[in-house]
């Protein structure tokens, strides 16, 4: 399951010898670039949880505002593109922090949601973004079952009345379709960074091209030990955490 270029064994998991997969990994940019999982660009994100203060919701609010994400009060109907969750729940017991840290779609290189979708509504773009074509979605929710991270939300009712601060810049969704983080593909198209990373007051989120050895994300990955969510599943997330 370990892929070339990834995973110099380090950290607790390996030291204790309990787990065969490295929980912490050190990505060497040159090794990564010499065996890319795909040619060209692969958008990814590195979240430095040490910089992310407890109680801050700037990124969550920015995301909600920029994509007309509805706010439903019933927790079973919540729609979220990004949320904050206890670090241990997210990254496992090797994660030292119990602080709430941001979690979003990992834009996996081997996305199980894509395999599950019967209509090809979720697909992986050639720049690594796992996108949803909302026009095609039939609302079967197979992707929600398949995603091991619970990052897909379903619109049980019309989301429009539940949008707190609507923006005309982005469409809404309708009842009966799923939605999730798009890595702000709409903003990337305009040459802007994702809303969350661009508005984080602490600079905790770094966005960039994982396949470019000179990008900020590659430099961070090369100089820090990072964790990904459930690496043992082989979904190859593109979102990395520095603990």
């Amino acid at each position: 399951m370990r892929k070339a270029g990834l995973g110099l064994i380090a950290g607790l998991g390996a030291a204790s010898g309990i787990l065969s997969n490295p929980l912490f990994e050190r990505v060497s940019a040159s090794a990564w670039a010499s065996s890319p999982k795909q040619p060209g660009r692969r958008w990814g994100m590195v979240i430095d949880t040490r910089r992310c203060p407890e109680g801050c919701t700037t990124c969550l609010d920015a995301c909600r505002r920029s994509h007309n994400v509805p706010t439903f009060s019933d927790p079973r109907r919540q729609v979220e593109w990004i949320h904050k969750e206890d670090g241990r729940a997210l990254l496992g017991t090797a994660c030292a922090t119990k602080q709430a840290i941001p979690a979003l779609c990992n834009h996996c290189a081997e996305p199980s949601c894509v395999r599950a979708c019967p209509t090809d509504s979720i697909f992986r773009r050639k720049d690594g973004i796992v996108a949803i074509d909302y026009h095609r979605c039939i609302g079967c929710r197979s992707c929600m079952l398949a995603c091991p991270y619970g990052e897909v939300s379903f619109n049980w009712s019309d989301p429009r009345p539940a949008i707190k601060e609507p923006t005309p810049e982005y469409p809404t969704r309708e009842q009966g379709v799923v939605e999730k983080c798009s890595f702000c593909s709409d903003r990337l198209k305009k040459g802007l960074e994702p809303s969350c990373s661009s508005q984080c007051p602490e600079g905790a989120m770094t966005f960039g091209d994982l396949n470019d050895p000179k990008s900020a994300v590659s430099r961070l990955l090369g100089s820090n030990e990072t964790m990904r969510r459930k690496p043992e599943l082989g979904t190859e997330p593109s979102v990395f955490y520095i603990i």
Binding site: R125, A131, S185
Partner: peptide, 10 residues
């Protein structure tokens, strides 16, 4: 356009 915009983005 819808198909291409959704799948190819930029």
């Amino acid at each position: 356009w819808k198909e291409h915009a959704a799948h190819e983005g930029p």
